[in-house]
Amino acid sequence: MYGPNDFDETRLDLLKEIGNIGAGHAAEALSLLLHKRIDMKIPSVTILPLNELISAENEKQVAASYIGIDGDIKAYFFMIFESQSAKRLIDELVPDGTAFVNELAQSAFCEIANILCGSYLTALSSFLNIQITQTPPVYAADMEGAILGEGLAELSLSNDFVILINAVLSDRASQRQLKGDFYFMPVAESLDAIFRLTEGKSFL
């Protein structure tokens, strides 16, 4: 079984590179959806112990979308935006912008999660040559700790850490930026599989 110390620089770079390829596809899909040029960057990929993940900021109000991943690997995917950023993101999609609580806004948010998660998974599956399926996204808006706590409950039976992918979405015309957190959390056995498959691989 692998631990956080096995994530050497090369492996983190690889995960980041897979993220950036996914981000490229996601930006294209979002640009089509929003009818404007959206860029997406992955500034960092970090490994976080579970107990640090839910720490001081866990009362922060967020909107989250959660997707289950199955197939050759089993994992969880969370897209989390602070409430204000989530509102702006949804305003872009549903410009009447009346409410962030209404169902249309929620499904817009979930659709973005679907696109971003799907793009990441497509990049990962073609790089590793594996089959992956994903469940429809579900939505929650509340305290970050409360949302992550539930999502992490099952994962915490076997893992002590998660992979955090920071992402920045920007509107090329207005230069406005939206920061979101993406948590890609393979269960322990799947993380082992990813490591085996990436052994000796690189983009060079």
């Binding site: 469940t135 579900v138 929650a140 539930e150």
Partner: peptide
Amino acid sequence: AEMFKSTRVLA
């Protein structure tokens, strides 16, 4: 509580 109630994706 049950934060994600609409669909059961958690095992």
